[in-house]
Nucleic acid binder design. Structure first.
Lengths: 305, 305
DNA sequence: TTGAATTGATGCCAAAATGGTATTGGTCGC
DNA sequence: GCGACCAATACCATTTTGGCATCAATTCAA
């Protein structure tokens, strides 16, 4: 990865002998002689002293040799790093995700496995809501996004990773906790804390449909901006909430979770990336994520609750 | 000073556009296209993503760009240093010298001036006796040697720098110090400390001849190995010594120096180098030495005593 | 002292690499 | 759909590089 003439110079300088250098380079001696002469002409100063018998490096030649040998090493290393990047074993993976998925389970497991497999890749994590993730993904500020229920992402590739069930969030001491099994009907009479449809339209609609179908009569008493706010209200005893099962791993103080037997609503965890993105760094990450998703199974968190 | 294809790659990567890169490189676009393709084939991985409109660097290409830009800088710098060396403004000057000449006067002045003039040259000083200096000079372990009265150096170039007078070394309180002028005859009766002829044959012979000619009757009482040992004996009050005037600048404790008016013996300070040595680093150093020698004059140290 | 051996340089031609012009194929914007 | 844009391809010219034979200078040995 150095110019031919420089490689030739290094060979002659190391051998201090045109003949030996030529055979080492597998070219004829006159050709080598000429290339070195041309290099000297190009540089404007001599690299070798021509002695009656053999050659010797000039002081400038000695400096040149040292410098060019160092350059060769750096060139090799540089190409090596580029090759690692081409193989996905070096580079940067910019990953956006919903905060709660990073706590436990599939995503952190996959990240741990990925870092172990390709330790030279820098993984940059940014937790943010769905909309900003999609925006940054399209703007090439992220390489992949992990979020729930993606909508209007025909321009992106979306891979389903897992179904995360919806669980009931109750304040401590809630009578429902004593039931062997909670069903939708049991919720009748309790105030329910909802959320703005805008925050997650599909979940909102799924929940409403499921609650009605199961014979419940949901009474939503407020609509906080996000899941954390909702859980805060639950914790204050304002009512019950329906939350993503991932919250189980970091229950807010004074909040208990339990599955609702006949509420068959899930959030679909997806990983998304640009359709034109073919980086091996990303490909490897997607592969690891896929393996982990298959290993964990389709509904990993129900049992854990 | 990088392979053509690498330079081309850098241009295209920086422009992210083959047409612009081609005109910047003053070649036609198809030629550039082909060279980049060939580079990719050679490397075994792609550097650019070909989009319907324009190109974009792959992750490997981005790494490659960074690496190759750094390489270009290092290559430039390396050739620059070699060029400096060719102009004598960079490199290494390995100088051997007799310890005492480095203390004051011509040699340190010249070194100071030289370092100021060509600050990029590393000067390596080794103080050693005459014989090892000549040996190492011939073995190319030194570039120049500064010593007294060189003999049998027909294979080397020898340039006379200065005549250093011989002065009388006396212990403190010596009665001779009260004389307005010391002459050889005054030394009669004092024990004289000599030195082994082998250490400096010419000085030994010169001194003997001069002492006899001036009517003295030298009585040598011992023959130490070198000047430092001799001065130590003088300091102990064992007798008087005849020393190189350079010693004046670092008088051993309890030793006083004075010229001997009618002892017209000098040591000739020479700089020597190999006959085949044409390094600009050396040439510049010799020039500085020559200037300093002319500036200081033929017998600089007599006045200083 | 002479002749063989060694070593790098030179002359000449062949091969390979590189460059230029014309053109194609694909996509975008109007 | 038409023109503009952009890179790729085809084909030929030019430049660079390589090989072979030979030379020139010097060394070494007989």
């Amino acid at each position: 990865m150095l110019p031919r003439r420089i490689r030739y110079f290094i060979a002659v300088a190391e051998e201090e002998h045109f003949g030996r250098a030529a055979s080492r380079l597998r070219i004829a001696q006159p050709a080598l002689s000429r290339q070195v002469r041309l290099l000297e002409t190009e540089l404007g100063f001599d690299l070798f002293e021509r002695l009656p018998r053999g050659v010797r490096l000039t002081p400038a030649g000695q400096v040149m040799l040292t410098e060019m040998q160092a350059l060769e090493v750096q060139a090799q290393a540089g190409v090596g790093r580029a090759r690692l990047a081409a193989e996905g074993r070096h580079g940067t993976l910019r990953l956006g995700l919903i905060e709660s998925v990073a706590w436990q389970g599939l995503v952190p497991d996959a990240l741990r496995e990925y870092r172990q497999r390709v330790p030279d890749v820098d993984v940059s994590l940014s937790t943010m809501p769905t909309a900003p993730q999609l925006e940054r993904l399209r703007q090439r500020q992220l390489d992949a996004a992990i979020l729930y229920n993606p909508l209007e992402v025909e321009d992106l590739v979306s891979i389903r990773l897992a179904s995360i069930p919806i669980v009931l969030a109750m304040p401590e001491g809630c009578p429902l906790l004593d039931l062997p099994e909670i069903r939708v009907r049991d919720l009748t009479g309790y105030p329910l804390i909802g959320f703005q449809r805008l925050a997650s339209p599909k979940l909102f609609d799924d929940l409403n449909a499921a609650l009605v179908r199961a014979g419940g009569e949901p009474t939503f008493i407020s609509d906080p901006m996000n899941e954390a706010e909702m859980l805060a209200l639950v914790s204050m005893g304002s009512g019950l909430g329906l939350a993503n099962a991932m919250q189980v791993w970091r229950p807010p103080h004074g909040v208990c979770f339990a599955p609702v037997a006949d509420l068959n609503v899930t959030q679909e965890l997806h990983v998304l990336h640009r359709r034109d993105e073919d980086s091996p760094v990303l490909a490897e990450f997607l592969a690891v994520l896929g393996e982990q998703a298959r290993a964990v199974g389709p509904e990993p968190l129900f049992d854990a609750v």
